[in-house]
Write a protein that binds this DNA or RNA. Sequence first.
DNA 1: CTAATGTTTAGAATTATTCTAATATTAGAA
DNA 2: TTCTAATATTAGAATAATTCTAAACATTAG
Lengths: 143, 143
Amino acid sequence: MDNLNLQQYFIDHNLKPTPQRLTIAKFLLSTDTHPTAEEIHKAISNELPTPISLATVYNSLEALVKVGIIKEVLTEPNKVRYDKNITNHHHFINTKTGEILDIEPYELISKELIENYLLKNPKQKFKVSNYHITFYGQVEENS
Amino acid sequence: MDNLNLQQYFIDHNLKPTPQRLTIAKFLLSTDTHPTAEEIHKAISNELPTPISLATVYNSLEALVKVGIIKEVLTEPNKVRYDKNITNHHHFINTKTGEILDIEPYELISKELIENYLLKNPKQKFKVSNYHITFYGQVEENS
DNA sequence: CTAATGTTTAGAATTATTCTAATATTAGAA
DNA sequence: TTCTAATATTAGAATAATTCTAAACATTAG
């Protein structure tokens, strides 16, 4: 999403396209990493004419989550990371480095399979609206 | 696991079976919920002759995680919940109530399926050692 | 231009957790 | 048993991440 579309997206979702929010959103959309609020704050602090406060980073992230442009990722205790969202997807955690990789949701499991699976659990009927898989393991780069 | 087996398990894992640790472990093994350290502290505080400190609850939980009797569950931002573990399993989060249900891992996805799936991601080779699914949705009790 | 509304800010407050260093308990040796 | 070394527990301080507060600022509608 480029700058102009981002502005439009904000307006369409009743969110004022302030420089702070735009900068944070642009930064997140430009990276494949999953930074914390602190990390975002550091990363963007020299991209704005005046320093941005950490509170604004938190406020903005909350707003961006609300309009569905980014997502929270919970992988470590007591730390929230943020992920440019748009699509639903899964995560692979490299157990050696802690790195988080996005995994696209090619049809891994069909909704039917999931609901049948959950039916084995005898006491309840589950209506699954969404699911998220965290894979743990190691990665070898292909040559 | 009963009291005696618990003691033995601790000893086998080089963990002194102190009253505090035993009480916390017994409490967790007796519930299907996924309480926080605070909640555990409250729940057990009158099961011991002298009051237990919150620091000990944290220390004990860390020790119990280390010996593999319980697991951390990360479902909400900035909150760690604990789960009697033993088996690998998944979680269903009731989006209405926030309740967390354990889902037994009947063979939902085979390891081969997972690794083939991840192969679609072109740049890397993944060695999956484990995976965890969080399902989100609603629950209807069966009559 | 002004009022109303919404946004950002610094710093205080809060929450969950970890650290510290003093005291108590434990398990094993004497 | 009693002693001792190692470990565990404790209260309270410290820290980390986040949220709150209330003042200042900016933007928009009239």
